[in-house]
Each structure stands twice: as C-alpha cells, then as structure tokens.
C-alpha cells in the first residue's frame, strides 16, 4: 500500500518534471528561433530598435517563472524580426523608386 502510494508520487513527480522540462525547452526553442531571425535581420542592417530588448525581457520573465509572459514576448520579437526581414526584402528594390531624378 505504502509502496503503491510512493510509486504514485514518484510517477506524479516524474510527470510534473517532464511537463515542466517540456515547457522550458519549448521556450528555448522559440527563443532560439526569434534570436536567429533577429541576427539575420541585424546582418542586413534592418533590425528594429527594441527587438533585442524584448528578447532580454523574455529571458527575464522566463527566469522569474512567468512562462506565459515570456512566450508572449518571444512571439513579439519573432513578429518584429520577421516583419523587418520582409521590409529588407521589399527595400532591396523599392528604394530605387524614391531616388530624386
């Protein structure tokens, strides 16, 4: 009986740690993706002003245990970096239209 109860707890603890671990790596995965996009757009000279700050805030939120807030911030940074990359793509040609002639 005791044994059964203990093993139930062990399994429960295992599940919890697996779940938590799963979430943390989900954050890491999404963070890495957003950071990679930010670096891509920085290399093209089109990074926006606060994308890096948002990613820093996301890390701080995650560290303080607020995973939900951290994921919202990561998504915001990913959105910015993606939009900035599209901007860089458009401007590869679009700037020529504005040249005074």
């Amino acid at each position: 009986m005791d044994r059964a109860r203990v093993s139930k707890h062990v399994i429960g603890a295992l599940l919890v740690s697996l779940f938590a671990g799963g979430c943390a790596s989900e954050f890491d995965r999404r963070f890495d993706e957003a950071e990679r996009l930010r670096q891509d757009v920085a290399a093209r000279g089109y990074e926006w002003i606060n994308t890096a700050d948002i990613l820093e805030q996301a890390q701080a939120s995650e560290a303080s245990g607020d995973l939900a807030a951290a994921l919202v911030l990561v998504e915001q940074a990913r959105f910015q970096a993606t939009a900035a990359l599209l901007q860089a793509d458009r401007e590869a040609e679009a700037w020529k239209r504005r040249v005074v002639r």
């Binding site: 089109y46 901007q87 020529k96 504005r98 040249v99």
Partner: peptide, 22 residues
C-alpha cells in the same frame, strides 16, 4: 550611402528621403 538614404527602415517604415526630400 545613397541606398541607405532612400531605404525605408524601422518599425515606422521611413526613409531619410521620406521626410527630408518628399
């Protein structure tokens, strides 16, 4: 330099020329 001047950038999507030429 010319390309930089005429390229829109930033979240507000402005080129130098948008304000100081147009």
């Amino acid at each position: 330099g010319k390309r930089f001047y005429y390229s829109k950038r930033g979240q507000l999507n402005f080129a130098c020329a948008d304000c100081h030429v147009t």
